[in-house]
Simulated assay, not measured.
Amino acid sequence: MITVYFAATNHDWDEFAEDLQNEFAAAGLEANLTRDADPALVDYIVYAPTGWLKDFSPFTRLKGVHSLWAGVEKIVGNETLQVPLARMVDYGLREGMIEYCVGYVLRYHLGMDRDVLRKDAHWDIHIPPLARDRSVTILGLGALGAAVAEALKALNFQVTGWSRRQKDIVGVQCLAGDEGLDSALEAGEIVVLLLPQTPETNNILNAESLAKLPSGACILNPGRGPLIDDDALLAALDSGHIAHATLDVFRVEPLPADHPYWAHPSVTVTPHIASDTRPSSAAKLVADNFRRAEAGKPMLHTVDRSAGY
């Protein structure tokens, strides 16, 4: 019998507990899933940054921690956590992100905002290029970025991807490093940000990098709010160099009511819904990872502390 401590909110417990218990049983794990346990008897922790747990040192028998979030910037630097940490990269999160990104890329590509009969009944014909003639840049080629790149390539878009470390994705031009970033930006008629939040990626879209995008480029950020210098983006939108930005994540959430993004005519705000953790699919991954750990195998999607993700 293993003891699994659930360190998240009451809402998370209501959402995840039943699915976790069912998946533990399906994986052949005899597991006591609890929110009330002696830390010295806990084998694994299911964790969310919104919970109360900050100090992992009392959990002396701990073998692994599984986050319910894809982002780990709020835990990766916690020095009290000395066991493997797995982040959430399940099929529900992946498919949800693909659908969100493909939907908004197609919105920009097809010009959906302009291709509506105006109230004066003016018949304004606009024929967009084919996807094969549209370049899309994806900044970040981790599990989610790679999946989005493959989906867009399957629709015949010219896809360029950039990451800190060199990647290889069939049909996608994969770039890395500072020079690669410049080339990726210069190719980005539509830019999708799917980078993790690290000191190196904060403000990766700033005044200098935004200026390297083609005039009239569109931006989609379902990654992390601090990837964008907000003042620089607003200035680029006001000048017309950037045509539109769809933003799902922000430095402060919920986005404050007086933030300029709300009223800007060239900004679409979505409330951090690009791809949420879905209990049914997330529970399968958690159960599989704890089963692997019990069998002496490494958990999937473990975090590289030195890289920050």
Rank of each mutant, 00 (worst) to 15 (best):
M1C: 02
T3Y: 01
F6K: 10
F6Y: 13
F6R: 06
A7K: 04
T9L: 05
N10W: 05
N10S: 13
H11W: 08
D14P: 01
E15A: 15
F16T: 04
Q21M: 05
G28H: 11
L29T: 00
E30L: 13
A31Q: 01
N32D: 15
R35W: 12
A37E: 03
D38C: 11
P39F: 00
V42Q: 11
Y44F: 13
P49I: 10
T50F: 12
V65L: 00
V65M: 06
H66D: 12
W69S: 12
V72W: 03
E73V: 14
E73Y: 10
K74S: 13
I75Q: 01
G77Y: 10
E79M: 08
L81G: 07
V83W: 02
P84V: 07
P84A: 09
M88W: 03
D90A: 09
E95F: 10
G96F: 07
E99T: 14
E99F: 13
C101V: 14
H109L: 03
G111C: 04
D115A: 08
R118L: 10
H122L: 12
A131G: 12
R134D: 09
T137R: 05
L139Q: 02
G140F: 00
G142I: 03
A143M: 07
L144E: 01
A147L: 04
V148H: 14
V148W: 15
N156H: 14
N156C: 08
W162P: 00
R164P: 02
R165S: 15
Q166R: 15
K167W: 05
K167N: 08
V170S: 15
G171P: 10
V172E: 09
V172S: 01
V172A: 02
Q173E: 14
C174L: 06
D178E: 14
E179K: 07
S183P: 03
E186L: 01
A187S: 14
E189N: 05
L195K: 06
E200S: 10
E200Q: 13
T201I: 00
N202L: 08
I204A: 04
N206R: 10
N206H: 09
E208S: 09
E208F: 04
L210V: 02
S215L: 03
A217D: 01
A217V: 03
L220I: 15
L220W: 06
P226F: 03
I228L: 09
L234R: 08
L237Q: 04
D238G: 00
G240D: 13
T246P: 04
V252Q: 05
E253H: 05
P256E: 11
A257V: 15
D258L: 06
P265R: 06
P265C: 01
P265H: 04
V267S: 01
V267D: 10
T270E: 06
S275N: 06
R278I: 09
S281M: 03
A282H: 00
A282F: 00
A283L: 06
V286S: 01
R291W: 12
E294S: 11
A295K: 15
G296L: 12
G296Q: 12
K297W: 05
M299K: 15
L300Y: 11
H301D: 11
D304Y: 09
Y309C: 05
